[in-house]
């Protein structure tokens, strides 16, 4: 079994997601199935294939150091569930 219940709970904690017992069990099973499927790739012999870090063959895609207009203040917060004086408001974290 490539993924354990403990790993799922750990990831949930890192992601700040509350995971009820039933969901944790369900997700452990589902993630396990997914990872087992991916594990099929292990059957391939990749010893002679160099590691790659990107699927596109491109390198060195830059933008020049030019300033572009930022969002208007009313637009930047338009989708925020809560705002306060131009600032995004989130539940108290300290």
């Amino acid at each position: 079994m490539p993924i354990s219940r403990a790993t799922v709970e750990h990831i949930a904690r890192l992601s700040r997601i509350a995971l009820p017992d039933a969901e944790a069990a369900l997700l452990t099973g589902q993630l396990d199935t997914i990872l087992r499927y991916i594990e099929k790739l292990d059957q391939l012999d990749t010893a002679s294939i160099p590691a790659m870090s990107h699927v596109l063959g491109l390198t060195n895609v830059f933008r020049e150091d030019m300033r572009r207009p930022s969002l208007a203040p009313e637009d930047s917060l338009a989708n925020a569930p809560a705002g306060d004086n131009g600032q995004f408001q989130v539940p108290k974290i300290i």
Partner: peptide, 10 residues
């Protein structure tokens, strides 16, 4: 951090 909430400036 204010008494009621946390405010974010990006």
């Amino acid at each position: 951090h204010t008494a009621a909430a946390t405010l974010v400036d990006y």
